[in-house]
Design a protein around this nucleic acid. Structure first.
Lengths: 342, 342
DNA sequence: TTGAAAGCGCTAACAG
DNA sequence: CTGTTAGCGCTTTCAA
């Protein structure tokens, strides 16, 4: 390991000067600076981040804690964060909580030891509590809000997106529209549920609690929830389903298939969050798409601005996009002229 | 930040003893140890990893460098690595190279400053070169081999998997079987191509270079390659396609759709690497599946064993699994008894 | 079994 | 503009 001292020696300056030449070149005379840079280059010097961070009481790194790295939505969030962080010379320490508060706690503990400058977190229900482990650390909550007072958040307009989707189903004539919602102790689920509710109201449809089933965001949860809803007695069974996230949408589609229901003829379905899967399956799924990469990138930019002492908006909402594809259709198939004339 | 000194003070011992009590408890008298642990607990002490690593000239962290975190296969590799590392108390510093050697170089440079104990890397063609930045660092090559002499590798049996897939197509009666292969400067592509070649040979089919098109592992590459192959004159057009990775398989399927070719009637297709997408699309894609999670987990275990001074196998190959679904069918559809009797 | 002291590599005060 | 000095928090001799 080549140290700064080695560089200093070769350049015939003190370590302090070498340090300055490398990190704050304007404080050093031109000639000296060049000697140092030259020496660093020939030796292949790479600063020891650990020593620097120890001295400066903080490393040029950021924590990123997501709840499910296998979920393409989260992978995309992470990419957005990483790209921005890297461009600014920050290292990202990424952790995965699997939606478990205990894992989040451990992630925070580990992170603490690394003295990160800031944290971007997709909260779990215990984030509020766990963040006590990291006092005074600038935090951006991504995708969801933990409910901490004064928290900075970067999210999408969940309520509007959900409203749009459910209104669409209502406009297609569906009167029994079910919802597979996430955990109601998570803000996105609450907001999407709120949009669902408002859309029903505006369409003059009753809100029926028995048509709303919560799940824990995974495929298996969506499958179970859909199964429960779709095996209700015919008179009560929903003719359309709005599903609260991408993983559960997969599960819901599989459940429908298992029950022999064809989309969109026997069941209309709209999912929240787009995916390649939704685009390419047959029929392609109508979705409320989220700008995942932008969310991640924006969260990171916001954090870096915050670190830079700039004032940043408390809360940002990015827009969702409604993408109409083939999984939602009118309740009663258009009767052909002949059939209609009987 | 609570330091070890704070703990020591509270426990009325020297920092040295406090350190020992926490990291090598057997060196400390029972009573003292308990006082220290108690003090650490009440203060919520968390060791400063930076200081510790600086002192010990190495941090309890591992580098993980993958080439495309958005690819679910890589996400799964990463999860396998992370889970094992975390269980052993290691922090994973993850980087993404987007298949770009320059990004890999930067990742290595950044990593170096963090003094990781070891590295797990999915190599790019320049890994051989870039690894000079990290001399003496234990390295496991994951999924692909860089070709470095003496490198430790954890991979799948690409050649066998490819052979199996292509033999299957040949057995179905296909005689013009195309391959969309990866970059031939990457070991997986070479090996899968080798399997393709051997399967043709064993089936008594000629190897036709014009039916083999390379791509850079992304969806767009697969699409372009498939388009090129499928627009050949009818007599030359392949009736079956073997695609070298999951992303390119998506592209190939989309290209076929654009050209109005139906799977498997107009074109048989087998992909390498399974995905949810391949499972749920219509028709479901026949694939050579890889144990991605196990690959990652095994790579990490191997690295940790290596760090622990154990002797580990130079090279490990995990088995692929051939999963027959609906995208590959006999060349000529089974004639019905009637049609066959003319 | 415990403590004193040194030092990992770096940077920030403070002189000069 | 540059060098000297000190110290970030921890672990590890060495000595008691």
């Amino acid at each position: 390991m080549i140290s700064l001292e080695d560089v200093a020696k070769l350049a015939q300056v003190s370590p302090a000067t070498a340090s300055r030449a490398l990190t704050r070149p304007e404080l050093v005379a031109e000639g000296t600076r060049e000697r140092v840079l030259e020496a660093a280059r020939t030796l292949g010097y790479q600063p020891n981040v650990l020593a620097r961070s120890l001295r400066q009481r903080g490393s040029r790194s950021l924590g990123l804690v997501v709840t499910d790295i296998l979920n393409p939505f989260h992978a995309m969030l992470a990419k957005g964060v990483q790209d921005v962080a890297e461009a600014q010379g920050y290292t990202v320490l990424m952790f995965n909580t699997d939606e478990e508060s205990a894992k989040e706690r451990r992630a925070f503990e580990t992170l603490r030891g690394h003295l990160p400058q800031g944290l971007i977190v997709v909260p779990t229900p215990a984030t509020h509590l766990n963040l006590k482990l990291l006092p005074n650390l600038p935090v951006i909550e991504l995708d969801r809000a933990s409910g901490r007072a004064g928290a900075h958040t970067v999210m999408v307009d969940n309520e509007v997106g959900a409203y749009r989707a459910v209104s669409h189903l209502a406009a297609l004539g569906h009167r029994r529209i079910g919802m597979i919602v996430g955990r109601l102790d998570i803000s996105t689920a609450v907001e999407r549920h709120e949009g669902y509710r408002r859309a029903l109201l505006d369409a003059g449809l009753p809100y029926r609690p028995e048509l709303v089933v919560p799940g824990n965001h995974r495929e298996a949860d969506g499958r179970a929830a859909a199964h429960a809803l779709l095996t209700l007695p015919p008179a009560e069974r929903p003719t359309a389903l709005f599903v609260g996230n991408n993983e559960m949408t997969v599960g819901a589609v599989l459940a429908a298939r298992e029950l022999g229901l064809r989309l969109p003829d026997d069941l209309s379905l709209i999912g929240f969050d787009d995916s390649r899967w939704a685009q390419t399956m047959t029929p392609a799924i109508t979705v409320v798409a989220q700008p995942a990469y932008d969310l991640g990138a924006l969260a990171c930019r916001t954090l870096l601005n915050l670190l830079g002492g700039q004032t940043v908006p408390q809360s940002v909402r990015l827009k969702t996009t409604f993408i109409e594809r083939d999984s939602a259709a009118p309740l009663t198939p258009q009767p052909s002229p002949l059939a209609g004339s009987r």
